[in-house]
């Protein structure tokens, strides 16, 4: 795909995603704002797909090393972010119904 073409496609995707994000996030209950931050942090590490391409080539040079470092950082975030979100969510409990 040519660069200029992708820009229009990308912009379309971007604007629509902003709208989706806007409506979905407003529905998040304030009690879960901390898990929201943790999980958005984890998903933003999807940047790892860019890092994988940089770290892939067999020839080691500056760009593969940068790619490797980016893979490490993004992995810390992915594992750390999802696990800490899970830990938080497991703590939220409803009142036990008295019989």
């Amino acid at each position: 795909m040519e660069a200029s073409n992708f820009f229009i496609t990308g912009l379309t995707v971007f604007v629509l995603a902003c709208f989706v994000g806007y409506y979905v996030v407003w529905r998040v209950t304030p009690a879960l704002h901390s898990p929201l931050m943790a999980v958005t942090n984890a998903v933003s590490s999807v940047i790892i797909v860019g890092a994988l391409i940089a770290a892939g080539p067999a020839v080691i040079n500056t760009s593969t090393i940068l790619g490797f470092l980016a893979v490490v950082l993004a992995s810390i975030n992915i594992f750390g972010g999802f696990i800490v979100t899970r830990r938080m969510l497991q703590m939220y409990k409803k009142k036990e119904k008295k019989a």
Partner: peptide, 10 residues
């Protein structure tokens, strides 16, 4: 782009 926009909006 999608993920970035979701996180950015959030």
């Amino acid at each position: 782009i999608i993920t970035g926009a979701l996180v950015g909006a959030s």
